[in-house]
Design a protein around this nucleic acid. Structure first.
Length: 941
RNA sequence: GCCCUGGUGGUGGAAUUGGUAGACACGCGGGACUUAAAAUCCCGUGAACAGCAAUGUUCGUGCGGGUUCAAGUCCCGCCUGGGGCACCA
């Protein structure tokens, strides 16, 4: 242990190392933060988004949210709440699998190592987590219940009448007794059969039908398939139609995949947003993602064909303006309807479109492309023939994958019509459709038969009426939200507990869960493109024996669950983490209910946060949870960005030049590790030479003996060599300084670049605070009565800190602490009446130093963590005068201290009578005097 | 492209939500203590102009307009950084 006071036994200075180690030991040794599931106190559940334990270790961005939630947790304990504040790991994921592919090491092993490192790093920051409740999504004890939930989803359907999920057994009973008659279920197809027909179906046929109702079901979906890698890629793994790794071609391919029928919950997910306290932009993101739109579905006949094209439109009023139709290139009817003469060009276009990802197609609005199929649709009202095209601006996954194009009133359709020289008939007046499309929902209908003369609004309902009357369609609510693809062609995820008996999906028995990941010889797909699990020798299922070798039993599912499976319900497991009989006991669930405060990044807005709400609502329907929403209040923390450093290398030369030269000549910027650059942006050249083989013998052009790098703000990431770990800071300044500094950086919600330049300010503050309680190394606190000034300073702080924590404005609290400590320092205050509340106030922010001071103030009182939080007393805060700023035409000229008891008139009279006022008037007359008591005086001349 | 979000001194940021722009902190400059250093403390610090000085004037919250007695804050139009867009987590 380092003692700054040298050999003296007394600790002269603030010795954070000793203090922090002492209290971290005390907290864990005494289980100070262990939460009980039984308490007379009100409960408060504070949750952090659990991290994915990556190989780079915890970086300074992670603790930002964790510190904030820890402050709230500690604050709530001081306020008399029974606080549940747990932490765990989202430990399934792609990076561990990639690493396993490269090194052959089992992902469980590297995951374990990464977790230990994360835990060590978190322990050093002094979080008040109840570690006895830790969860890991990759632990069989945990994913057993993820699999269990999957089985429940598989065995459920959605009843539109009661608007909730019900057991599939009930649906089967209904089919036995009434067929589809009288049941209104969310279903993938429009199905109708009688009980007799149902009775006649064999098991395979029945299962086929039930797949359309199950909330977890198999269906075809389009994926980015890379034949060379034999695997499916995420959109961001695809660059310009090629895989980012290796640069192999990627094609769009349809695949049978497990999916989740989240669309059944679209309306409830939308409505629920009004009941939760989340940031408005986040709710807005979810609303847009769900994308509810009202309109109509219309069926268009195809000339010389039995088939019909179904479209969804939000503008049925413009039906007379349809001059062509566009299908997504992947639309199932394309091949059927294409005329012989166009077959080749249609095929070519489909291939071209198949090379683009959906995102590329959405992003590129400048290039218009498409291909005529040679087929014609028939307009349902005019009987006119309408050419049918295919075009990649129509997405197969949205609506029906087909649009009725109204070029006059839709900008994408307009661009398409212009490009291919198709007619643009105007049907809503108000714009000039020869110049651009008129998309506004205002104006009168023209050239539209029975709709002529109506407003857009009237025309929409009239058109729907007419469409329904003709039996060619109906009014419909459409959602942009799609069912979520649930299967992944990966190893490191939860196995899906399903096996196939003669091709029919059957579920693994609950008593055989968890279905554990099998051993495989490599973490790659098989040679014929099967997922890694297909490599396992032991991967079949016997309903009596469980998992068996491939020689007996039935084949098990080989895809695994996506990253979001475990994170969709982990918050429930913390309530009752060791339960072996249920995912969470009724009693624990009843006590903790749901999360009171959830802190995490807004990048999860439409993924994790929507899926969790979906699963939670499903579990509510089936009676396993008693609340309708998982996260009552949510705060987004901003991202901490890294400041990358670049050394500039001359184009095509192995010579590096310092920043000032780099500005004048063409260079390639090369990322250099930020740890090799000092605060003045000077690079340690020797370290750099050793770091990269190819720079070993490079030349360096310096200026003034220095080599200077340039800086740029980017996302903090291992690949950009700009990751800063919290460890060094804990080492150099201590956890309390790190905690307060991260809060001091700025508002929690804002993203900001990491920069340690200001950290000494916070460190100095803690040293100053320490000196209030100590003199010459002795703890000296007096019992004297405090002065009015000291009380005012303290109570100003108490008020500020209470208000700020409630509003999650932690940066301003830190400033307030600094102001108060500066004031008390100036007053040489060492009075217990002031310093005791000060220590308690500080305890959520800098818990180690607060415990240490508390143990000296109250040697036998135990931990500070549950001592009641100070309350501000107004009597110490009242002011009787105010220094009024006096402005002329809005410009502040001077200040005048006046009693707050004065009326507006009195203030006005007083100010006008002042000599200074007359000086500023310069002889001009006063037009008006505005007096806002307690705020400002403004004189208009 | 679409959706969300940010832009204030050399730097991080503050501003009671329409009422003194720049709190607090870093950095920088000057000073005290010290043989010296560290540590600590004190003073100054948005820019330009005028003045020996106290001080004063003008400009100033990404850019251009507008509303208002008063705009960082409200409205309209732009520029620009960051995040998301369904298999990264």
């Amino acid at each position: 242990m380092i003692n700054f006071a040298g050999s003296q036994s007394k600790v002269m200075e603030y010795n954070f190392r000793a203090i922090e180690e002492k209290w971290q030991k005390y907290w864990s040794g005494n289980q100070v933060f262990k939460a009980s599931n039984h308490s007379g106190k009100p409960k408060y559940y504070v949750l952090d988004m659990f991290p994915y334990p990556s190989g780079a270790g915890l970086h300074v961005g992670h603790p930002l949210g964790y510190i904030a939630s820890d402050i709230v947790s500690r604050y709530k304990r001081h306020k008399g709440f029974n606080v549940l504040h747990p932490m765990g790991y989202d430990s399934f994921g792609l990076p561990a699998e990639q690493y396993a592919i490269q090194t052959g090491q089992h992902p469980a092993l590297t995951t374990e190592q990464n977790i230990s490192r994360y835990r060590e790093q978190m322990d050093k920051i002094g979080f008040s987590y109840d570690w006895s409740r830790e969860v890991r999504t990759s632990n069989p004890d945990f994913y057993r219940w993820t699999q269990w939930i999957f089985l429940q989803l598989f065995n459920s359907w959605y009843d539109k009448e009661t608007d909730k999920a019900l057991p599939i057994a009930e649906l089967i009973t209904r089919f036995d007794n009434h067929g589809t008659e009288g049941t209104f279920a969310v279903c993938g197809l429009e199905l109708a059969f009688t009980p007799e027909e149902w009775a006649g179906y064999d098991d395979a046929r029945r299962e086929d039908i039930l797949q359309n109702y199950r909330l977890a079901y198999r269906a075809e979906s389009t994926v980015n398939w890379c034949p060379e890698l034999g695997t499916v890629l995420a959109n961001d793994e695809v660059k310009d139609g090629r895989s980012e790794r290796g640069g192999y071609p990627v094609v769009q391919k349809k695949m049978m995949q497990w999916s989740m029928r989240i669309t059944a919950y679209a309306q409830r997910l939308l409505d629920g947003l009004d009941t939760i306290d989340w940031p408005e932009p986040l709710k807005e993101s979810q609303r847009n993602w769900i994308g509810r739109s009202e309109g109509a579905s219309i069926h268009f006949d195809i000339k010389d064909s039995e088939e019909k094209i179904e479209v969804f439109t939000t503008r049925p009023d413009t039906v007379f303006g349809v001059s062509f139709m566009v299908l997504a290139p992947e639309h199932e009817l394309v091949d059927q309807i294409t005329a012989e003469a166009y077959r080749e060009s249609v095929q070519a276009y489909k291939e071209q479109a198949g090379r683009k990802t959906e995102r590329d197609r959405m992003a590129d609005v400048k290039t218009v492309s498409g291909q005529f199929t040679g087929a014609y649709a028939v307009h349902p009202f005019t009987g006119q023939e309408i050419p049918i095209w295919i075009g990649d601006y129509v997405l197969a996954s949205y609506g029906t994958g087909a649009v009725m194009s109204v070029p006059a009133h839709d900008s994408r359709d307009w661009a398409f019509a212009k490009h291919f020289d198709l007619p643009i008939p105007e049907v809503v007046s108000g714009g000039n459709v020869a110049v651009e499309s008129y998309d506004a929902k205002e104006g009168k209908l023209v050239n539209s038969g029975f709709l002529n003369g109506l407003d857009v609004k009237e025309a929409i309902s009239r058109a729907i009426e007419e469409i329904e009357k003709k039996g060619i369609g109906k009014g419909k609510i459409n959602f942009r939200l799609r069912d979520a693809v649930f299967g992944r062609q990966r190893y490191w995820g939860e196995p899906i507990p399903v096996y196939y008996e003669n091709g029919v999906a059957q579920t693994v028995k609950e008593e055989h869960l968890p279905l554990q990941l099998p051993a495989v010889d490599a973490y790659l797909p098989t040679d014929d493109g099967e997922p890694p699990l297909a490599r396992a020798a032991t991967w079949s299922y016997h309903p009596e024996k469980g998992v068996v070798t491939a020689s007996e039993g039935y084949p098990l599912e080989t895809t695994t669950m996506p990253g979001w499976a475990g994170s969709s319900w982990y918050y429930l497991r913390y309530m009752d983490p060791a339960n072996e009989d249920r995912m969470v006991s009724e009693k624990a669930e009843e006590y903790w209910q749901n999360v009171d405060l959830y802190i995490g990044g807004s990048e999860h807005a439409t993924g994790h946060l929507l899926y969790s709400r979906f699963w939670h609502k499903f579990m509510f329907d089936r009676g396993w949870v008693s609340t309708r929403e998982p996260f009552q209040k949510l705060i987004n923390q901003g991202m901490i960005l890294g400041t990358s450093a670049f050394a500039h290398r001359l184009k095509n030369k192995n010579e590096f030049v310092t920043a000032s030269i780099a500005r004048q000549v063409p260079t390639d910027p090369i990322h250099v590790d930020v740890n090799m650059v000092n605060a003045s942006d000077e690079l340690d050249i020797e370290q750099f030479r050793q770091w990269r083989d190819d720079v070993g013998n490079a030349e360096f052009a310096l200026e003034g003996g220095k080599f200077v790098v340039t800086r740029e703000v980017e996302k903090m990431s291992k690949s950009k060599y700009n990751v800063v770990n919290p460890d060094n800071i804990c080492e150099e300044y201590g956890a309390d300084t790190l905690r307060m500094y991260e809060m001091f950086l700025g508002p929690l919600e804002q993203s900001k670049p990491w920069n340690t330049a200001g950290i000494s300010g916070v460190y100095n503050f803690l040293k100053k605070l320490w000196r209030l309680y100590h003199k010459d190394g002795d703890f000296i606190v007096s019992e004297d009565e405090p002065s009015k000034e000291e009380l005012k300073s303290l109570h100003t702080l108490i008020k500020k800190v209470n208000d700020d924590i409630e509003q999650f404005s932690f940066n301003t609290s830190v400033s307030a602490f600094m102001i108060c400590v500066n004031e008390l320092g100036g007053l040489k205050c060492n009075k217990r009446t002031i310093l005791e509340p000060l220590a308690i106030l500080l305890s959520p922010f800098a818990p180690h130093i607060a415990e240490e001071l508390w143990s000296k103030l109250q040697p036998s009182a135990g931990s500070i963590s549950e001592v009641p939080f100070p309350q501000a007393e107004e009597q110490y805060l009242v002011e009787d005068t105010f220094e009024y700023p006096v402005a002329f035409n809005g410009k502040m000229r001077f200040k005048e201290e006046l009693s707050l008891a004065m009326s507006k008139d009195e203030i006005e009279k007083h100010i006008i009578s002042l000599e200074k006022t007359q000086g500023y008037l310069e002889g001009k007359s006063i037009r008006k005097v505005i007096v806002v008591p307690g705020k400002i005086v403004n004189i208009v001349v």
